[in-house]
Design a binder for these strands. Sequence first.
DNA 1: CATCACGGATTGGATACCAATTCTCTTTTT
DNA 2: AAAAAGAGAATTGGTATCCAATCCGTGATG
Lengths: 250, 250
Amino acid sequence: MPSAFEKEKDNSLANKSEKITETLKRAILAQRLLPGAKLGERDLAEKFDASRIVIRQALIRLANDGLVTIERNRGAFVKKYSLQEAIEIYDALTLIEQGVAAQLAARLDRAGWQILQDHIKLQADAIEREDNDMADDLGAGFHSLLVSLTNNRVIQDIHAQVVQRSHLLRSLHISRFDYCNLLEEHSKIVDLLQRGRLKQVMELIDHHHHHVVRGYVMDFSDHPAMSLHEALSPFIAEGGGSGASVGTAE
Amino acid sequence: MPSAFEKEKDNSLANKSEKITETLKRAILAQRLLPGAKLGERDLAEKFDASRIVIRQALIRLANDGLVTIERNRGAFVKKYSLQEAIEIYDALTLIEQGVAAQLAARLDRAGWQILQDHIKLQADAIEREDNDMADDLGAGFHSLLVSLTNNRVIQDIHAQVVQRSHLLRSLHISRFDYCNLLEEHSKIVDLLQRGRLKQVMELIDHHHHHVVRGYVMDFSDHPAMSLHEALSPFIAEGGGSGASVGTAE
DNA sequence: CATCACGGATTGGATACCAATTCTCTTTTT
DNA sequence: AAAAAGAGAATTGGTATCCAATCCGTGATG
């Protein structure tokens, strides 16, 4: 009876509250809930078929991660970052990734370099296929991959946190940046890193993020912002969602 | 009636739940609640004269900050970091402060350097007075001060988060490290930084944290750990606390 | 002696209810 | 008629109470 394989230590989202947190987070990061969108407790409770309490717990977690703001007696909203904050976020990202690069330049082994180059090749293929969504994911994933090679979960978590916030900025800008260019920079980073040209790597990462943030055309107008129901339906198991056009909004 | 000075935007802990969060955090960081201590919802609710729900919200926030762990159906405990995690935390701290140092070396103006040197002098005075607690605070404060000079709130918050976690490590080690030595290093950091000797600064920061983490003698035995009531009474407004021996445990 | 079953005890969650604040829309006043 | 004032609805913050699930220790049982 006591099969030895039971204690899987299923750490993944045992709590309803955490599940809701993750779902909301995904909806926000996927830009289905845009900055400024109101996250009413009653509405969410209804959509998730949960009590207001677990909703509030989820909102507290998201607020703690900087993805929503909770205004007293007014409610929770998807966080709207200012241009100044956008710059700070990218500066933080630069700082972290520069530090990671320095660590990796000293410590990474052959297998590690291979992983990075494989990843870059994947992205290059995606671009050739003109699979923009995939290229987007891989392009962002490159940075996370870089960080994960430090084998330091604390740094990974911090980095992930800042990356998440940076996703909130993407809905504030219009122009899509040039993937090829970014890819080339990624490739150059790995190359320089491997050859120990640390200083140039630093400058490149700095330039890389400046390139992104400068590409932003801040757009603080109020977007139409689909309703909560529309925004969340593809994430909550139930028919309703005409899930065709999830990825690309405009 | 509408006095122009009313909208003070009192952002400071309007919520009961947040107040409790901060109080618990202070108690944990002050090492009155040691790693492994159980934070029972019922007990806390009683001590804070609050409902279990706001307690849980506070615990969720603390868990999100990595100060407590919540084990399903078992409760919340002050987080007990492993040696591996301790190393990761100090690595993260090193990474952040190195990055900050690099930024400051390029950007800091005269007033900034003065602030740093004033701070060091304060600590030196405290050491001469043999005011260990003060020296401790100032020593830790140096790093936060350094980070705050970036004028980047995101980086400051991240740094503060990691520093908080590092406080949880201090209760796991026995030997107190040598303040004078650390002070000297701080002073040297500022000096080198100002002269643009970036590489040496990096090595010094690295060495600095290694110095701390190597000074640790991990002690995983269960400390007696005073009761919740004892631990929290000085933080909750009421007579009870014989506040004499708060700072220095052993 | 090992195993299983049975109660506490604690957490996770739901529901109902109330207080405080904000928002909105109507009413009143000038 | 425009602006100020006010009443009422809606929303959040919080409490109390109840119930289900789970964990843990204890004791019965083979």
